[in-house]
Amino acid sequence: MSSAVGYSTTPPAGSSRFSLASSSTSLYSTSQNPSSSTINNNPNRRESARSSIVPIQQQLFGGTAQPQGNVNILDRSINKTKGSEMALSAWAFIFAEVIAYSQSRSDSIADLEKRLSTLGYEVGQRILSLVLLRNTQASNLKDPKREHRLIPILQFVHTQIYKYVFGKPADGLERSSEAEDEYMLVLNESPLSQFISVPKDMSDLSCESFTAGLVEGVLDGLEVPARVTAHWVGDQYPDHPQRTVILIKLDQKVMDREEALGK
């Protein structure tokens, strides 16, 4: 096969949920799945790629594999997370800058929270796609799973999304005793805002609004529209002065659907 068709973008029909464009030639026989297929017929490609596993980004965007150590973010393997974690300090500095930037452009605490929430929403949408894609690939495309009921969806956020974002699942998922359509995600100590000390004159502000927005983005992506807000409750828990509750107020439409689906 000539080198010109080395970066085909067509995974086998029927087994892919993420093909972007189709080209005339496919390198994969139908029995192979994209994440594990090897290219044996393209010497240029084999020279440049150290491993025989083709990162999905390369299939999608047609990038050229580079030697490891100086790999473009788009050229990285989508499933390999080891070694690509970001330093917490770097994140803390950028998040501090994000808050300072948002603060300089907002005229009230509510406005600032709204801005943080909007940013988190964008992040949530992207994280959802990535986590779902990884899960699908981890299950070898045989049994792609996507939750559709409310409780499994909330558990998915509680466990998988929180684990992906914070490195550990949330400390609690509770249902409000007052309202049927309110659920709470509890995190005793958020890595996102652990260095932030809110001044007294802004004590209402919860920088976890970013997380709230993130959760809202994920839930929206799973067709569970909700109004998500963050509330600091550390004053009631001396052991966890940074305890924050992410309050999820579900849309009436979700409650109706749950009722229609029944048990």
């Binding site: 800058e97 808050i99 000390s197």
Partner: peptide, 9 residues
């Protein structure tokens, strides 16, 4: 460094 420099306020 943690509590002061990383604090946006």
């Amino acid at each position: 460094s943690d509590a002061v420099m990383k604090n946006p306020f």
